[in-house]
Design a protein around this nucleic acid. Structure first.
Length: 576
RNA sequence: GCCCCCGUAGUUCAAUGGAUAGAACAGCGGACUUCUAAGCCGUUAAUGUUGGUUCGAUUCCAACCAGGGGCACCA
């Protein structure tokens, strides 16, 4: 269509312009709309409607068979109505490509690295990590669907003051130290509680603060190879092991598979060296015994990279991490997803990195996710009022259980539905909106599985699958009839479903370009709505003509929905 | 104080500078009792304020108002 218009403009003697080709808000305005006439008319000083008419006339001289009608509307939009033949072809294409429909090659040959989730051993895996994981996984899969070669990476803080605090707390609470046979969740709970104990003591008591700092220093030395008290060593090893085990379980549940994990202890020293080297080149400055980067020179703020104890801070480790990443491969794009509170922090680090290595800095992109808010206020793993991810998920699962208790599911199916619907419910809440903004999590709303929700999408697919099963049992095969056979069906009127299905690859493309999974989410919700509406008004399996095509449409729908949900990493239950 | 982000129905979110601002929930009102009612159909309701740029602004710019985040050895 773009070519058609450009050609028409050329013939008519107008200059080529960059115009928008969009899907109109309403199906009444056709399938594609172009605003070329408005732009051309402005430049040529003519009436947009007249220009549009000229273009229309020119295009109609040789109308491709995929287009049934061209119309002028509003201030000078040129609307294109696609033909029945086009839709039949697109349904056929979806059936043929199946699981691959929507896979693009735009990013072919590009290597992309995604860092997300980033939970810290010794700390709670909380709902903020759930957000990061949900968005990061969607970003990764979008990149894959656009053809990129993707690797996933997770970064964890296994050194730093929070460990000192936790281990101090663990030692205080020695009597409650879990045994090897205890449940993993209890072990992790103990670690989390110890952190809170240590953190509060750090704030309240000068003595405790001194002890914690001492432990912290010992851990640094321990990781550098020197011996340490047995208590500290045991606490450290067990604590880290339990955390990592729990994280693995969580990733499996969420549908993420990391290609590698990097821990702070692996990058701290390298980062420190880079900062020291940078200091010699005057990238960093000394101030009050610490090594800082003066962000003010760039409209940012100053941050400490090496503290006055001589230890690298998170900032220096971040530098080390960046080099570590690019030591693996020269990524075309390295993407990092963190909470939005780290936005300004990251700008400073990236600016400092730019002074050390322009290439790495320019190939790195930082995205943020908002915070999940509750009536109780901001959650923070640094105070005590965190909402642990596993507790949060259990709550949703029990609600799903309540919802399905009247259904005659066996135990296996019940467990499957509980898990998949729970994941769908909260992931949808996160992925329906532009990432970066806070997500307001309202228990009753997210857990009411109606309307604009993950379960709504899952439900639509399972219903469609159920129809397909019925068709199979009745011996009906999905078939797109061609030519004259078509005319005999009841499907002469082109349905909104057909007009939605072929747009999926465009949604994948744009969502990938803009790192905007909500484009896919919105598309799927609209598609599911259109299907449900059609389903509600049409008896798909019946004796009337066109059954085979109606089944084909249903099948095409399930392909698109499944592919779309796959991008969002939302699983589809076998039944609901 | 300085910097960044945000402000759309009662509520939670959409809307690549375009047409009548789109959903869902809540509210009100229906239909079928044949493929799964977690569904379908109808209906009430919104761009914080004031300017500017533009043929056209929810979108871009300015000011103001309201909210959130960040600003030195935590991550």
């Amino acid at each position: 269509i773009r070519d058609l218009i450009n050609k028409a403009l050329q013939i008519l003697g107008y200059e080529q312009v960059d115009f928008a080709l969009t899907h109109p808000d309403s199906f009444e305005h056709g399938d594609y709309a172009a605003n070329a006439a408005l732009i051309v008319a402005k430049k040529a000083g003519k009436n947009p409607k007249e220009v549009a008419e000229q273009i229309k006339a020119e295009i109609e001289k040789q109308l491709p068979q995929e287009i049934s009608k061209v119309a002028i509307a509003g201030p000078g939009f040129i609307n294109f109505y696609l033909s029945e033949q086009f839709f039949k072809q697109s349904v056929q294409e979806i059936l043929e490509k199946g699981d691959n429909f929507g896979k693009l090659e735009k990013l072919k040959g590009k290597k992309m690295l995604f860092e997300y989730t980033d939970p810290n051993p010794f700390k709670v895996f909380h709902i903020g990590h759930l957000m990061s994981n949900t968005i990061g996984e969607a970003f990764s899969r979008l990149a894959e669907w656009n053809g990129a070669e993707v690797q996933r990476m997770c970064y964890g803080g296994d050194v730093g003051l929070h460990i000192g605090k936790t281990i101090w707390g663990m030692i205080q609470n020695k009597v409650a130290f879990p045994h090897d046979g205890d449940r993993l969740t209890d072990k992790v709970k103990f670690v989390g509680a110890s952190y809170v104990t240590g953190n509060n003591a750090y704030d309240d008591s000068e003595v405790a603060k001194g002890e914690i700092i001492a432990i912290n220093k010992k851990i640094f030395e321990y990781l550098a190879g020197s011996a340490v008290d047995e208590d500290i060593e045991v606490c450290y090893k067990k604590g880290k092991q339990w955390s990592v085990e729990l994280f693995q379980q969580m990733y499996q549940f969420l549908g993420t598979k990391f290609d590698f994990n990097i821990f702070e202890s692996e990058v701290a020293e390298a980062g420190k060296q880079k900062v020291i080297e940078g200091k010699e080149k005057n990238v960093f400055a000394e101030s009050d015994g610490a090594v800082v980067f003066k962000g003010e020179d760039y409209g940012l703020h100053t941050r400490v990279f090496i503290n006055s104890e001589g230890l690298p801070t998170y900032e220096a480790k971040e530098i080390g991490l960046a080099f570590k990443k690019f030591g693996i491969t020269d990524w075309n794009q390295s993407v990092v997803i963190t909470a939005s509170e780290q936005r300004d922090y990251y700008k400073v680090v990236l600016k400092a990195l730019e002074q050390i290595d322009v290439h790495i800095a320019e190939s790195t992109k930082h995205f943020t996710h908002g915070m999940m808010r509750f009536a109780s206020g901001k959650m923070s793993s640094r105070k005590g009022n965190v909402i642990a991810a596993d507790e949060f998920i259990e709550e949703i699962k029990s609600d799903v259980a309540e919802k399905i208790k009247d259904r005659a599911y066996d135990e296996v199916l019940t467990e499957e539905v509980k898990n998949k619907v729970a994941v769908g419910a909260f992931k949808y809440v996160i992925l329906r909106q532009a990432s970066g903004k806070d997500v307001v999590y309202d228990n009753t709303q997210a857990l009411s599985f109606e309307g604009d929700s993950g379960p709504y999408l899952q439900y639509a697919v399972t219903r469609a699958n159920s129809v397909l099963k019925k068709a199979t049992d009745a011996g009906i095969t999905a078939q797109v009839l061609s030519g004259e056979d078509n005319k005999q069906t009841e499907q002469d009127a082109i349905t909104e479903l057909e007009r939605m299905l072929y747009r999926f690859p465009e949604a994948v493309s744009r969502a990938g370009d803009e790192y905007a999974p909500q484009i896919v989410t919105t598309y799927l919700t609209e598609l599911a709505g259109v299907f449900n509406s059609w389903y509600g008004n049409t008896l798909i399996i019946s004796d009337t003509a066109g059954v085979a095509y109606r089944v084909a449409l249903t099948k095409a729908f399930t392909h698109v929905m499944q592919n779309g949900l796959n991008i969002l990493a939302i699983p589809v239950p076998s039944k609901m």
